[in-house]
């Protein structure tokens, strides 16, 4: 009696161990096996299949005991505050190509319904020194890996996601503007009055119930809260490029994933590391330690004439107002 008990207990432990090993198998492997088992449903039950555990040992389990694990995150249920798993979005801006066509800014203003006086995306007329050549420098939010704005936010309204995006929860923002003071890139804008986004914002609210669905993080704008470039999570989710990237006629903007080491401007895809190395890529105000996700390629071997851009340059306007 005692022996049987002992045996069955041992069996139970063994079985449990095996099961435990099985569950420890990575999600990727599991999904493959599941498809395998489904394909082999005609094979009589009590059929054993072989599995490899994470430490490399082969084990046999009854195929009927194999179930799909639930830990593989699907894109659909991703949390707006956490972002997409295993992604790290970056941008590369090639200053050699920019001639201040401002199509990026127009597209950005349009798709984000910007109604204030300060565009999220700006193209600066830059000149480092009197004896260096002037150039055009588009700036977006740098989506820093050490974001000064996130550090100082008292209520966690602006947050850093694991996919690299820095976004704003404008349902929580108290409007203290500390983040604006903290940002060395002056990228943040404030809704000083009720943003006049009209029907668009109503439409957005109806379509998306809450403001903070992944696609429309921070949209529509809310009076008394801070806004900024969001790297277009609504486009990323559809596997599309941010609006500034697609709108640029000169291929200035490259967008991509640092983990995949690839960036694209829509017409050409490049290795990020190679591109940065070959063209001496740099980041703005690197010395501040903010670790931006936006890289710049210096304006050398220019493909465009600086002068051409002057015709679009306006000192005091970055958002076109409806007449």
């Amino acid at each position: 009696m005692g022996n049987i008990n002992k045996n069955s207990r041992r069996k139970f432990i063994e079985k449990g161990l095996k099961l435990g090993l099985v569950t420890a198998v990575s999600g990727f492997g599991i999904s493959k096996i599941v498809s395998k088992t489904i394909a082999k449903t005609s094979i009589p039950p009590s059929n054993k299949i072989e599995l490899m555990t994470t430490d490399g040992t082969l084990i046999q389990v009854d195929s009927s005991e194999v179930v799909e694990m639930n830990h593989s995150k699907k894109l659909d249920d991703y949390n707006v505050r956490e972002g997409m798993p295993d992604r790290k979005f970056v941008m590369v801006i090639d200053l050699a190509k920019c001639k201040n066509a401002l199509k990026c800014q127009k597209a950005c203003n349009k798709h984000h319904y910007i109604t204030g006086d300060h565009a999220w995306l700006k193209v600066y007329k830059m000149q480092e020194d009197v004896d260096t050549a002037p150039y055009w420098m588009p700036t977006t939010c740098m989506h820093c890996d050490h974001p000064a704005c996130v550090t100082v936010c008292p209520v966690d309204a602006t947050f850093k996601r694991r996919d690299g995006l820095v976004l704003i929860d404008n349902e929580r923002c108290i409007g203290c503007r500390f983040c604006m003071a903290a940002c060395p890139y002056s990228t943040r804008v404030f809704n000083w009055s009720e943003p006049n986004q009209g029907e668009i914002s109503m439409l957005m609210e109806m379509e998306h119930q809450t403001h903070n669905t992944a696609e429309f993080a921070g949209l529509p704008s809310v009076k008394g809260t801070v806004d900024k470039c969001d790297f277009c999570p609504h486009a990323i989710k559809q596997n599309e490029l941010p609006h500034c990237v697609t709108a640029c006629p000169n291929g200035v903007f490259y967008f991509g994933d640092k983990y995949e080491d690839t960036v694209t401007n829509g017409s050409e895809s490049l290795r990020l590391s190679k591109l940065l190395k070959d063209k001496d890529g740099y980041r703005l105000m690197e010395s501040l330690g903010t670790k931006p996700s936006v890289y710049y390629l210096p304006p050398v071997d220019r493909l465009v004439d600086f002068e051409e851009g002057l015709e679009h340059y306006t000192d005091f306007r970055s958002v076109d107002k409806p007449e």
């Binding site: 565009a119 700006k122 830059m126 105000m285 000192d315 306007r317």
Partner: peptide
């Protein structure tokens, strides 16, 4: 505040 790192451009005078 009126002397940020990047120049003030593209906003009302």
């Amino acid at each position: 505040l009126l002397h940020p790192f990047l120049p003030i451009q593209g906003v009302p005078e």
